[in-house]
Every structure is written in C-alpha cells, then in structure tokens.
C-alpha cells in the first residue's frame, strides 16, 4: 500500500461496500466504512485499509496495483473501473459506492465468477493458428511494423471484464461471447501470421457472436487499455458480411476471411 505513516490523515471519507456472504445465508446488503482520505490513494488502497484495519472479512481480488493484471475491476459509483486506477480525490468528499462488476454471478462480496469468459476464449480459439507451418529452427515469421500495428491494439486486453459489465447485451444474454472474447478473436484474425479465421468464423460470426452486438459502444468507453472492442466487433461484421456476399457470388471460391481489410 502506498500509505506512509508520516502523514497523518485527518480527513475521512465513506465507502459503501456491497456484501454477500453465502455461508451466512444472508441476503446481499451494503456496509459502510469510514476510511482516511488521502489524495494519492486509489479505491483499492481504501479497500486494503478496510481489510487490514476494520474488517478482515471483506473479500475482493487484487494483485499488481498498476493497472495491468486485470484483477481489481469493480463497479465504482455505478461505473466499471479498475479500483487500482480510480483515485479517491475524484470522488471526495462524496461517498463512494463499491459493487461487484455488473452482470456476473457473485461468489462473495466483490468477487465475481468469470470462468465462463475463459471458456469463451477457448471457443473462439484465441491462439495463433499459423497460415503456413514453419519450424522454429527456420526463425521468426516476418511481420512488418505496419502489419503488427493492424492487430496490436487488440492484444492490449487485460481480461479485466469491465467491458462485459458495461454491455447490456451481455446483461441480458450471458451466452453472448462479449466484447473482450470477440476482440481477442479479431486480434488473431488480423495477425499476418495467422490463418485460422475460417476456423473461428463459426463461433465468432454466429448469433451468439458478433451478430448479438447492437453497438451500444460502452465497452470501448470503459476499457482501461483503449482496446476498442466495439470497433473490433463492427469491423468483424463488415468482414463477415463481405464473406457472405463472396460466398453468394462465388460459392466455391469462398475463402480467406478476416485477414485483410
């Protein structure tokens, strides 16, 4: 934690935190904690203060505290945020409401179940399916900086799930592949080394894939890493549509989707 003991905090602020303890059989409720206010503290620092000093039973996930591990996503005043990057000073002196990420099942307190997301990655096949086999001994696949740039943005996804909890489509249809899984599928489809777009098409270009998306666009707004999943999905729609027309015009010549656009 960032706190040094040299500075004594006189100001405080209140955190209203979502609690759910299935063992106790209690209904979910909110508990309010008063924490010291420091202008360089983030919401995660406040939660750690609560856990260390006030209430050891509060459960949440965190690890890197520098916005790259993707563990600490929560709803902060109704907005999906990485709590390690949400500063108290942006809310002070108002009370902050902390809840688990929207639309996911809650295991306990602020901890959501995100196992389904990893299953979705498997369905989409988010790994490199080489366009041409080449042994490692033959060296690297050549890829120019321009080719790298075409998919690089989509590699930046930290799997923090903020986009899912901003997506009302996911809220209504939990089977929707969702922004991050589709963006990661696009990441490989757009990689010059990859030739797996056809293998991914059945899942990606399905009704539970891109066509479920109605382009609310909030996934891209809340993404802490500017991945722009909404853009990835719309571009995939264009590709899928082109493929469909190509298939219509040249039923046998239908080949090569995704790769170049």
């Amino acid at each position: 934690m960032a706190a040094s003991e040299s500075q004594t905090a006189t100001e405080t602020m209140k955190l209203e935190v979502f609690r759910f303890l299935p063992d106790e059989g209690e209904l979910p409720n909110f508990q309010t904690y008063e924490v010291p206010y420091r202008d360089d503290w983030v919401v995660l620092d406040a939660l750690n203060y609560i856990k260390d000093e006030i209430d050891g039973t509060l459960s949440y996930r965190w690890s890197c505290r520098m916005g790259v591990c993707g563990s600490c996503g929560m709803m902060v005043n109704g907005e999906p945020k990485l709590t390690c990057s949400a500063f108290l000073r942006d809310y002070y002196p108002n009370q902050i409401k902390v809840e688990p990420l929207n639309y996911f099942p809650v295991i306990r307190d602020l901890i959501i179940n995100m196992d389904q997301f990893i299953d979705k990655l498997g369905e989409v096949k988010t790994w490199l399916i080489p366009a041409e086999e080449k042994s490692v001994d033959e060296g690297e696949y050549l890829q120019t900086p321009a080719q790298l740039a075409k998919y690089k943005q989509y590699t930046m996804c930290i799997n923090c799930m903020l986009c899912y909890s901003a997506c009302p489509v996911f809220g209504q249809h939990p089977d929707f592949l969702g922004p991050a899984a589709i963006a990661l599928g696009q990441r490989y489809n757009l990689d010059s080394r990859d030739g797996g777009a056809d293998e991914r098409a059945d899942v990606l270009f399905s009704n539970e894939g891109i066509w479920e998306c109605t382009f609310v666009g909030e996934c891209s707004e809340v993404c802490p890493k500017n991945v722009d999943p909404a853009g990835a999905i719309q571009m995939a729609k264009v590709t899928a549509t082109n493929d469909w027309f190509k298939g219509l015009l040249m039923p046998k010549g239908k080949k090569k989707s995704g790769g170049d656009q």
Binding site: L128, E140, Q143, T144, Y151, R193
Partner: peptide, 19 residues
C-alpha cells in the same frame, strides 16, 4: 523466444519484419 514468436507474441519489429 522464437518459439514464443510462433505462438503469437507480438514482439516489436524492425522495418524489414525481423524481431
């Protein structure tokens, strides 16, 4: 590291496409 390149790691590149 080459193996990782074959698994898709987005290594930064030289203009000629080498790592």
């Amino acid at each position: 590291l080459l193996q990782l390149e074959h698994w898709g790691c987005p290594w930064s590149r030289n203009p000629d496409g080498t790592v």
